[in-house]
Each structure stands twice: as structure tokens, then as C-alpha cells.
């Protein structure tokens, strides 16, 4: 029977290096998903606040679908669906070829799509909090549509949307745990391997919980710093 300290040491005896690799995968997956989800979410929010009814409808369909599906199912749909789809396309080019879809990219797409459907709602409510006069002021000093968005609306939008987006980031961090189900070596999968080999399941899964908590606490500290920095730019009224 090895002691808990040996099990949690760095190197061939312990599992700490494997778990650290899992933390690296989890964090990099979340960081890679964030810009994708933010960008798509912003575009969908633009569509949903448009005056054009058809654009609004198209945006709402997107949100309805990806907010209604379980994240795990979205992940499987992307992972297996992409595999089958690309396979079918490849048959035209070179029959008999097989492809393996990258689990990291699948996870990024699935989590990004889910994240964007939620973030579009956050952006939308932020858009609604900005009075029309801000747009009109931008146009009246001769800014173009894009310039008004970039220099007048966006700085305010980010400030209003930040708390909601921070919440979504914490949810995203937790949702990355699902990629362990499609074989990506994130925290939960590495810990699961360690638990199966050493039979110290409670120790390792408890450790995983503490790591996720630590990531959440570090994120909160970072978010607070960003919020302070952004609110400093705000015009005092």
C-alpha cells in the first residue's frame, strides 16, 4: 500500500505529472473555446437585435437548438457526426481512406457552439441596455456603421456584458469535464486512470474536485481584476 504522498508525487511513482498534463489540457481547451464562443455569440446577438425579421428568426433558431440540447449530446453529435460526414466526403476523393476526428477540435467546436448560444443572450441584453442615442450620436458626428460599433457601442457593451460573460466562463470551465467522455486526457480522465490503477478512487476524484475549485477561484480573481480595469475606463457621470 503506497501512501497518499507517494501517489501524489511527481515522476514515475506518483501521478502528479499526469494530472498536471490533464490540467494543461482542460485549461487550454477552455482558453481555445473562449474566443470562438465569444465571436460567434457576438455575431448571433447582432442578428438577434437586427431590425430585419428574417435575421432575428435565424439567430433565435440557433439559440433554441443549442441551448436545448444537452452539452454531452452536442459533443457526441459533433464528434461522431463529423467523423461520418468527413468519411463520406473522403469517399469521393479517395475510396477506402479513413479519418480520425481530433477530440480536442470536436470538444472546441461543441463547447464553442454551446457557449456562443448562451453568450449571444448576454450580448443581446447588453445591446438592449445601450440607448439609441448612442448610435445616433455616433452617426451625427459622421462615424460609419462599423466605426460607431467599434468606438461607441463596443466599449460600453463589454462593460455591461462582463459579469454575464464571467459566469459563462466558469460554466465553460466545468463543461470541459465532458470531453473526458470522448477520450481527451483532461483532468477528469487522467484522474480516472489514476483511480483505476491505484484503487484510491476517492483520493483522486476528490483531488479533481479541488483542482476545479482552484481553477474557479483563480478565474474569479482574474475576472475581478478585469472588471476593475474596465470600470476604471467608464466615464464618471
Amino acid at each position: 500500500m503506497q501512501s497518499a504522498w507517494t501517489l501524489l508525487s511527481w515522476g514515475p511513482e506518483g501521478w502528479l505529472d499526469d494530472i498536471a498534463y490533464g490540467v494543461f489540457i482542460t485549461v487550454s481547451l477552455a482558453l481555445a473555446t473562449l474566443p470562438v464562443g465569444l465571436a460567434i455569440g457576438f455575431l448571433v446577438a447582432l442578428a438577434k437585435q437586427s431590425e430585419e425579421a428574417s435575421l432575428r428568426l435565424a439567430g433565435n433558431v440557433y439559440t433554441t437548438i443549442f441551448r436545448g440540447l444537452p452539452e454531452l449530446l452536442t459533443l457526441f453529435l459533433v464528434f461522431y457526426g463529423a467523423q461520418i460526414g468527413i468519411q463520406k466526403l473522403l469517399q469521393f476523393v479517395s475510396p477506402g481512406a479513413t479519418v480520425e476526428v481530433n477530440a480536442f477540435v470536436s470538444g472546441m467546436i461543441a463547447l464553442g457552439v454551446v457557449f456562443s448560444s448562451y453568450s449571444s443572450e448576454v450580448f443581446l441584453s447588453a445591446f438592449r441596455a445601450i440607448p439609441r442615442g448612442q448610435y445616433e450620436g455616433g452617426y451625427s458626428i459622421g462615424l460609419s456603421n462599423v466605426q460607431t460599433m467599434r468606438f461607441v457601442i463596443l466599449p460600453q457593451l463589454i462593460r455591461i456584458a462582463l459579469p454575464g460573460l464571467a459566469n459563462l466562463w466558469l460554466i465553460l470551465l466545468k463543461d470541459t469535464a465532458l470531453v473526458s467522455a470522448i477520450g481527451l486526457s483532461d483532468i477528469l480522465r487522467q484522474v480516472g486512470v489514476a483511480a483505476r490503477v491505484t484503487k484510491h478512487a476517492f483520493l483522486f476524484f476528490g483531488l479533481a474536485g479541488l483542482i476545479y475549485l482552484a481553477l474557479a477561484i483563480i478565474s474569479s480573481v482574474g475576472i475581478n481584476a478585469i472588471e476593475r480595469a474596465v470600470s476604471k475606463q467608464a466615464v464618471r457621470r
Partner: peptide
């Protein structure tokens, strides 16, 4: 603060 999947495991 922790994933539901981790709690279930």
C-alpha cells in the same frame, strides 16, 4: 464550482 460529472464520479 466543480463539474457535475466530477461529483458523480
Amino acid at each position: 464550482g466543480t463539474p457535475l460529472l466530477a461529483q458523480t464520479f
